[in-house]
Structures are given as C-alpha cells and as structure tokens.
Design a protein around this nucleic acid. Structure first.
Lengths: 230, 230
DNA sequence: TATTTATGATAGGTTTACTATCATAAATAA
DNA sequence: TTATTTATGATAGTAAACCTATCATAAATA
C-alpha cells in the first residue's frame, strides 16, 4: 500500500537479493543495528544470526562475508543520497542553490522521508559515518572496483562535480571538491563526536547545522571568484 | 655515529619499547613492509614472525595486538611530520610560506632525510595513506583517545591550525582546514591510484606535485579575502 | 659465579570464518 | 491432488586467527 521504493544494487554484492525475503530484510535491518552497536570489527555473522534468530549458514546464503554486507549498505546509502538529491533539485535551475541542497542531503540524509520499515536511515547514517570509508580502504579495492561495486559512489560524485562546474566552469578541481564535501561531512560529524580537537564544529544530538554551514562556506569560498563583491 | 633521531611515543602503545632491541626494530621494520604488501586485514603476528624468523609469542611481548602496532606506526609518522615541519619552518616568518612548507611535508614526508635504517619512510607513507585512517575509526576510539594515543595527531593539527590563524585571524575553521589538508593529502593520493574517478589529480610514480598544487590552491582560496587582488 | 633478562620452542584454548550435509516446511508446478 | 522445487534451520566440522602459558637456553648484568 502506498509508494514503495526499491533501490537496486550491483548483483555481485549478494548471492541472493536480501530485499526479496523476510530473512533477507532482517539481515539488512539487524546488520545496521549491530554495526551501529559493535562497529565493523566486532560484528560477525554468528552474532547477527543470534540477533535475528537464524543461523550462520542461512546468512551465508545471502552474503559471502561481512565485508560485502558493508559494501551493500554503503551502496544503498549512496543510491539513497543520489535519489534525495535528484528529487530535491527538481525544477531548481540555480546551480548554487543546487549545491546547497546537495550539502543538505550529505549532512542529513537520515532525516528524510519516505521511510522503509526494515531500514533505519538514521542508524544507517551513523554506520556510514563510522564505517563507510572501510569499503574501499582494503587490498581488494582494485578487484572490487573492477566488479563495479563503487560505480554508484562515482556516479554520485560525478553528479555533484557537474553542479560544481556549472557554478564555476573554470574551477579546476570539481571532483576533488565533490568527493571532499562528502568525506568532510562524515569526517567532521565523526570528529565532533569522538575527536573534537580535530575540528571547529560541534554537533549536538542530531543537529548538524554547523557542519552544513561550514561546508557551504567552503564551497562558496572555493567557487566564488576573488574579484566578485559579495 | 652521526646524528641519531629517536622519536618517543606514548608508552601505552607497547609493552616493551621496540626501539630498544634488535627484535623490536625488526618488528617495526617488517610490520611496515608486510602492511604495505598485505594491508591491515591480512596482516598478522604469525606472518610477521615468519618474516622476521621469530615467533608469535615473542612479538606479543612487544605489542598487545596488531591494532596497537598500527597506532604505533601512525603515531611515529605524525611525530615525524611534526618534526619535519618544525625544522623546515625555522626562521621563516611569513605564515603563508609556512603553510606551503607544511603542505609539502604532508604530501612528501617520505622523501626527507635523515634516514633511519629500520624504518623505510616511503613504505611507511604508503601504509599511512592506505591504512592510517583505521587507527581512529574503531569502537575503541574514545577509550584509546583517553589513553592519549592520538595526542600527537591533535598536536600536529593544532600547530597547523595556528599557522592558518596567523594567515587569516578571522577565518572560522582553522582546525577543519588543518585536519582536512592532511586527510585530503592522503585521500587523493589514494584515489589517484585506486579510484581515479573520485579526483581530478593524477599521481605518476612518486610525483605528487599535483596534490601539492591542489592543496595550496584550496588553502589560498579559503584564506585569502575575496576582496584582495591577486 | 649467580642472577636476571630476552628470546625461542612448544602447546593449547577460544573465536572467527567458512563449507557441507541433511531434514523439514512452504511454495510452486504438473 | 500430488510431485517437486525452494528456503530455512539444525548440525557438524575444518582452518586460520588471536592470544596465553610454560619451559629451556643463551646472553647480559650483578
């Protein structure tokens, strides 16, 4: 009933699509909860199966290993952010305004509707902030990139870089800025919480306004000509 | 004979100072080589002991686990970069010039003298680029921060933030910029090698000039008033 | 010469990661 | 309807990773 969103991901990520069964959706749901509680290193399929009330072998029928579960979740998040950007920038022509919307999606993708019952987007966002970088910082990065596992991240960054180039066609680093805005968003939310001496930002509860303001300031400073009066 | 450099690190990182014995120095040396070859996930004390011609139990007398070895190496690197910045900015008064020197240290800390036989700084730099972020992206971050394991990183960032504030005392995000320049340096060297569609930079062999130019451009754009003619 | 210290050798225990097999209930096809 | 396929659970088991403990011995120090 109502509108249903189904995000499709690279088929190489799973052995069996977890979105198609109760057990599969439970794997996704409790992976997010457990990853958020334990962190990636202490998370494993044994604990996950106990949480779900299933067995290790059943989970292995969906995912080869926990690393692929993480890539699956992160890919889902990337697609979700790309979707949010798409619908929120519809009918917006000013690229500066578009970039502001993009930045808003980066910092608070978790607080948007519509909701999907088996996927707590707020918890997913904290998993991305704490663990997201681990998907591509491994020895297998080249092999996994070859399988297209990071294609949707690259697509997301390409979209953002396009908007950046619209704002300032002479700017030489649209991809650097695009990927950096995304990484900074996650980094400084993390720093604010765990290593506050590495940032000027503070985050109170779920209030990430300071991060948003900061990213807008950085983007504006970098893209606005030094000669323009503001 | 000659000048010897000894970097002292937080004593909580090790059970026994690896710099004080042949075996200890071998642990450091071969940890760097193995981490660079295998990555953190596939690295373990069994493989390390075989490489050295020692035993697992002997290595456990120096470090509690491989995560602490990584923190040890990363801390050593942070101290080393701080040292390089200190000596290379001696007698330099212009803070803009100081920041240029800092950026140069960030991107190419591996190619400076003097050399320490048991520590391949070029290999260490690639370990930092690929694995460095893993030291503080774990569930134990708060506990380990409480033990002071990240104090020298925070000190390094504080120094850089100080120079940034010298350049522009009204700039609101000195710590964000300082930590971001460091992280961007490692990130984009990594991207250039493994995920080139996330950056505009290319790195040929050990030539990181483009990264250096990019970081200088970002810093300059952010810190120079919009009204100043350049 | 006696004692402490560092290392190696060896063993073992626990957990993690993963594979395989079989039983059964549910869904689907004939 | 009955037959068959499919999904899951139950159970077992292996190899490696992670970590601790004990003992022997050689080197360094008292």
């Amino acid at each position: 009933m109502g509108i249903e969103i189904k995000i499709t991901l690279n088929e190489g990520l799973y052995l069996k699509d977890p979105q198609d069964s109760v057990l599969g959706r439970n794997i996704i749901k409790h992976s997010i909860l457990l990853l958020s509680d334990l962190g990636f290193e202490d998370f494993n399929f044994k604990k996950l199966s106990l949480e779900i009330g299933s067995t290790e072998s059943s989970i292995y029928r969906y995912f080869e290993n926990k690393h692929l579960v993480l890539i699956y979740l992160v890919s889902w998040y990337w697609e979700w952010v790309a979707y949010l950007i798409r619908i929120n920038t519809l009918n917006i022509n000013d690229p500066k305004r578009k970039l502001e919307i993009i930045i808003n999606c980066f910092v608070s993708a978790s607080f948007e509707n519509p909701s999907i019952d088996y996927l707590d987007k707020s918890k997913l966002h904290s998993v991305i902030i704490a663990e997201g970088i681990k998907v591509y910082r491994t020895k297998d990065v080249d092999e996994e990139d070859g399988k297209g596992f990071f294609r949707n991240y690259k697509q997301l960054i390409k979209t953002v870089a396009g908007v950046i180039s619209e704002i300032n066609p002479t700017f030489e680093y649209p991809y650097v800025l695009a990927s950096n805005l995304f990484e900074m968003s996650n980094n400084h939310i993390y720093f604010a919480k765990h290593l506050p001496r590495l940032t000027d930002i503070s985050v109170n509860g779920n209030n990430v306004d300071e991060v948003e303001t900061m990213l807008n300031y950085f983007a504006d400073k970098l893209l606005t000509s030094a000669f323009r009066l503001q």
